[in-house]
Design a protein around this nucleic acid. Structure first.
Length: 423
DNA sequence: TCTGGGGTCCTAGGACCC
DNA sequence: TCTGGGGTCCTAGGACCC
């Protein structure tokens, strides 16, 4: 490998949500732990011990009571406030190792380590792992290669290595590991594409690497071609070092229990709009349109089903929460039908443009609104979510999310800080 | 009783235009 | 027998990711 060649590290937090819980409760070490999705629905994070028990990703928790009971599996509701905060700490730490970094998801980041030799890379990887663990308590694994796609493969192998680091650069070694990787495990290849590939006799990542590019272009589009190139060590998916503004912002939730009245759905919607509007203001954008949707429980075989959505143009684009709540209500009134048991509702804001790009810009009355909303944002940031809110003041009811196994906000609430006892 | 949520990118096909 | 052709823009839907 030449000096100055591209090297990309994928740093991936191991079983991230479980690891966050373990930082604050060491008794969870070495025992099976699972974290549930919103409403305590599905399993979304598993400790290695839980994986060994055969609990798979996405399993509805109500289907595995026996496994949980028999093996004393520790169960937690999702504590996103905690996970997001721990994620920021991990990312801050990673920044120490490279100026060029892409935060890819809550628990993954790509780092450019261009210019280092292979021996250096392994020791840098080990140092990253040690430092993140020391500073945050979160275990990570590190995969390093010339492209993002190969680094993802390397990262999977790193998870099984003692030092948690794996590098792939020379081509014989690359071919060896790709021959042991199924095509469907490659980043960007899902179940549908894998099925198409199988028909063509492409089963492993190595088969895919050597596939006919024309055929791939015609059947898997340019995205597939990029994947193939990256497997060949040709980097064509760049690091996104600046976070691009979101082009759409959505907020939707399943209800804790079925909801029938429009009034109660309005309570839910006003909270969802509030959340989405805060996000839009944070990136200084306003929406051109809003979609509202509602649906009954698609899993319920007995109940009668209904689902509908409506999209509205926002004539004077704004991220002012009360104005957007009004839009959402009017959309809901259009699609709501009496006599159904609703299970989920949501809002989607699309066509987001810079707040300075709207004409006319804020003047007069709008200026007052702007000041008000800024103040609300500051208070909520300081004192906690929904300290001040718009919409119905009463925010309880069937629609509220179930979170029966929630841990504390150890890092984001003064009243719930962990307590350390010393003799 | 009980089955998550939030994004991105790409393409086919329709509408429209000259 | 025979219907013009080519370009752009928009959108719905599919596929993927964590």
């Amino acid at each position: 490998m030449k000096k100055g060649s591209p090297a990309i590290a994928l740093v991936d937090c191991n079983n991230f949500y479980v690891s966050c819980e373990r930082v604050f409760d060491p008794s969870l070490m070495n025992v099976p732990v699972i974290i549930l999705s919103n409403n305590d629905g599905c399993v979304v994070s598993r400790s290695n011990e839980a994986k060994t028990l055969g609990i798979s990703m996405g399993t509805p928790v109500f289907k595995i009571p026996d496994v949980i009971k028999k093996n004393k599996v520790q169960v937690f509701s999702s504590n996103y406030a905690l996970y997001q905060d721990m994620s920021s700490r991990v990312m801050q730490t990673l920044k120490e190792f490279s100026q060029e970094m892409e935060i890819y998801s809550i628990d993954e980041a790509f780092l450019s380590l261009r210019g280092f030799g292979k021996d250096d890379l392994i020791s840098i990887g080990e140092k990253i792992k040690k430092t993140v663990y020391k500073w945050t308590g979160i275990p990570v694994s590190v995969g390093i290669s010339p492209t993002k796609t190969l680094s993802k493969v390397a990262g999977d192998i790193a998870k099984k290595k003692e030092n948690g680091v794996f590098c792939v650069f020379d081509s014989a070694q690359t071919n060896d590991i790709l021959s042991k990787t199924e095509a469907v495990e490659v980043w960007g290849i899902g179940g549908r594409q894998a099925a198409k590939l199988a028909v063509k006799g492409i089963f492993t990542a190595l088969d895919l690497k050597n596939a006919d590019r024309k055929w791939v272009q015609n059947n898997l589009t340019v995205t597939g071609v990029k994947t193939v190139l990256e497997l060949n060590g040709i980097s064509c998916i760049d690091l996104e070092t600046v976070v691009p503004d979101k082009k759409g912002i959505a907020c939707s939730r399943s209800f804790g229990k079925p909801v029938t009245s429009i009034e109660e759905i309005k309570k839910a919607l006003s909270e969802y709009v509030t959340t989405a509007a805060e996000k839009m203001r944070r990136q200084k954008t306003v929406p051109l349109s809003l979609t509202v949707f509602i649906t009954t429980d698609r899993f319920s075989e007995n109940a009668s089903q209904y689902a509908n959505w409506t999209e509205m143009k926002i004539s004077e684009p704004t991220a002012y929460t009360p104005a957007l709540i009004k839009y959402a209500y009017s959309g809901l009134e259009k699609i709501y039908r009496k006599g159904y048991q609703y299970k989920k509702a949501g809002v989607v804001f699309t066509g987001l443009i810079g707040e300075d790009d709207v004409s006319p810009p804020f003047f007069g009355e709008d200026n007052k609104r702007q000041n008000l909303i800024n103040t609300v944002d500051v208070i909520n940031k300081k004192m906690g979510k929904n300290t001040v809110s718009f919409g119905p003041s009463e925010r309880e009811g069937n629609w509220k999310m179930r979170r029966n196994f929630l841990s504390k906000k150890f890092t984001t609430d003064w009243n719930e800080l962990p307590v350390v006892y010393c003799d």
